[in-house]
Amino acid sequence: MPHDADSPSPFHAGEQEMQRRAGKREMAETLGRRMIRPFMPDEHREFFAQLPFVAAGAVDADGWPWATLLSGAPGFAVSPDPEHLQVSLNGTAGDPVPTAIREGAPLGMLGIELHSRRRNRLNGRIISAGPEGFTLRVDQSFGNCPQYIQERDLTPANDAAPAPPQAFTTLPPEHSARIAQADTFFVASHIPAGADPGREGVDVSHRGGRPGFVRVAGNTLTIPDFRGNNHFNTLGNFLLNPRAGLALPDFETGSLLLLTGTVELLEEDHPDVTGFERAQRGWRFTLHKGLWLESALPWRTGPGRFAPQTLRTGTWAEARTNTRTSGK
């Protein structure tokens, strides 16, 4: 059942503080207690079982969070009961997330169906793991709205063998260009043991916008934070542990760009945020390490059909114009 009035808050200290800053603390607590469950309802269990991929977030041995996409034929993720999810691994060599999946480790998962724009979140802890897959025990399960998800139809593809991973610590120009044109990425964040006692965990979330919504300058990305569900799962984690893992899929080639690095939060009155349409605040990511996994995904798709909310957001080019016009 959802959290009752006598149980601890479903939100940790960082999430609660971000909710206070936004003036949404009481509302978020009320809705969170209704929405966030320590088990998966049947519709979520059925939802995960028919997906061809899930986003996942984990933490490597040095404490750096990574995000990725785990793929398989529908049924590769199944729920034997409301408290558990079993996932078969068909991992790409060099992907740090499968390497970090071990018994006792926290893991964040996001089921997302691109053609319907449905998504459901699942955070928990791994209770068994091996080369073929793992079982996750549910800590938190909740739905998310379809805002900013670009609608896409996936086509299976097995036409190219994955290439060896390419590691880098400085963004190559070709990857900077990919990021600058991206309309979708996934972000993993992590609160380590001790940051908020008893609340260690990993979360992975979706971010979407019009191409140009991520600004690239050298090794630094600046990302607006659009209006959402006021849970502040990602930014609340950043407040306690300013590290992030990003996964940017190249939908046309099936390749994955994975990044991990440090984060700086930008409040709503920051000059880099004020001119950006629908941005309440933002964050700045600085690269620590990156990986390029070519042909890592067993499916392809073309340009997405923009969500209505996406079309109402801005780009950094527009933000510069808005800022000059307003005199800020």
Rank of each mutant, 00 (worst) to 15 (best):
G198C: 09
T301V: 05
E132T: 14
G72L: 07
L221A: 14
T222P: 13
P224W: 00
L69P: 05
W299R: 01
T99Y: 00
F276K: 01
R278H: 15
L122Q: 08
Q150I: 06
L265T: 06
L114F: 11
V87C: 05
F168Q: 04
I223Q: 11
N241M: 10
L221C: 15
T155H: 15
L297A: 10
A182F: 03
T286K: 15
G57W: 11
T253R: 03
T155E: 12
F226V: 09
I127V: 15
A77H: 07
S205L: 01
R210K: 14
H190D: 14
S79D: 11
G236V: 08
L69G: 04
A247F: 02
E151T: 04
V273E: 03
R25D: 04
A77I: 12
T274A: 06
N120V: 08
D42V: 09
L297F: 09
A180Q: 10
R227H: 14
M109P: 00
I126K: 12
G104E: 04
D159C: 09
Q19E: 01
G314P: 03
R305L: 12
A67F: 05
H3A: 15
E277F: 04
P211M: 14
N120S: 12
P8F: 11
L248E: 08
V97Y: 04
R243Q: 13
S326F: 01
S176D: 07
R207C: 02
I36N: 11
K289R: 14
A129Q: 01
L107F: 10
H44K: 01
D139V: 00
H175F: 12
I191F: 02
F142N: 10
K289P: 02
P303W: 10
M1A: 13
F39P: 01
V214H: 11
F226N: 12
T323P: 04
E200Y: 03
T234C: 06
L248K: 13
V216S: 13
R34A: 15
R207S: 02
A161Q: 13
H270M: 05
D60T: 10
L51E: 08
A93G: 12
D139W: 01
F251W: 13
